[in-house]
Design a protein around this nucleic acid. Structure first.
Lengths: 198, 198
DNA sequence: GATAATCTCGAACATCGTGTTCATTATCAT
DNA sequence: ATGATAATGAACACGATGTTCGAGATTATC
């Protein structure tokens, strides 16, 4: 009924996605050519272009699953009620968990030799989520909402990248703590607790 | 004496840089080909490759001037003494000023359709600077130094991008205020002043 | 001004990746 | 079984890259 019928297309698309993932792990996204992908997937050239406009399109299509998974996680976490009352930044731990699970892929996508396309896609997904969570709570009026949003997303990507490249042994929860610390408090002098100064 | 003699090479390099800048403003960095550059600069193809390995190399070489200019600005600002005592984040205003002066170029390089190479270059330059400034002051021990460094740089790029793309009318000093606010305080609940809660 | 060094030119070339076309073959849904 | 649809693979046009080389132009230096 729906569009998911024909087994042939499903098989082809699965093969192409698998090939892309293997290749990303093997040689990094940027270095991959369409030729590599169809060789690895053992699929005809014209077949590839019948499904996707290029490797970027193929990669992007892989993010739909992530988008949905995160949307559900957010709904589940924020199911407390209407707004964003459960936790300040409820999305972050779920996201770090997800990244921890597919650590190899994330590292290959997010690092220096990673895929800008992928990072942008992640940014876009996170922007939506953060916008919802931040819509209620209004903090500093000296800092416009848009830039606050971008700040949260940017910090997340920063911490994510640092984690995967420099401290892959850390647990998602530990990374999440660092993230929240930075986003909520910055790096300013300690904080309110009036610690001893001189 | 030094390497800067021959007027021919100087002329050629200047022409190529100028051509690259014009093209960046006209059609964005990614869309530019070497052919475009040498047409615009009216320079032979082999001549181009005698000087640079590609458009990326050409772009990168343009950042040396910036690197030096910023190093001087930092030395001048931090000339107070040995360490980083003058201001917490002394580099930021100088950098925003510089970006404000060459606003068109920066916007074309930093935006969505900008040049990853350029942003990476900016990141690298800033990392050096921030590392020096942050080496003395040790804040939160729960947040490792490396990630704090990346956090500052990342936030700078975020604010810079937002400024150039969404609020180009703002003055550098205003943007700088927002940047410092975010870096030092984050977006945490109001502040220490124990405002009325319920 | 003459000389030797060296920079520039431009055309030609090999190479590679892209994206399309089309007739043929294989697989699917029913 | 059969009509519909997907996959194949070879061929093609195109555009960009990076290199080579001999001839000519510009330069530094004496």
């Amino acid at each position: 009924m729906a569009g998911l019928t024909d087994r042939r297309t499903a098989r082809t698309q699965k093969a192409l996605h698998g090939a892309l993932m293997s290749l990303i792990l093997r040689k990094g996204y940027e270095a991959i050519t369409v030729q590599d992908i169809i060789d690895e997937a053992d699929v005809g050239r014209s077949t590839f272009y019948a499904h996707y406009t290029g490797k970027e399109d193929l990669l992007r299509s892989g993010f739909r699953a992530l988008r949905m998974e995160l949307a559900e996680a957010q709904d589940a976490a924020g199911a407390t009620s209407d707004g964003s009352r459960g936790e300040p930044l409820g999305f972050s731990l779920a996201m770090f968990d997800h990244a921890g699970e597919y650590k190899h892929i994330y590292r290959a996508l997010v690092g220096e030799r990673g895929a800008v396309v992928a990072v942008n896609e992640i940014r876009r997904i996170l922007s939506e989520i953060v916008r919802k969570e931040l819509s209620g709570a209004q903090g500093d009026e000296a800092v416009p909402g848009e830039v606050r949003n971008q700040f949260v997303v940017g910090t997340f990507v920063t911490v994510l990248t640092w984690w995967l490249e420099r401290r892959p042994k850390l647990a998602p929860s530990q990374v999440d703590t660092i993230f929240r610390r930075l986003v909520l408090n910055g790096i300013g002098p300690s904080r309110c607790d009036t610690s001893h100064q001189e």
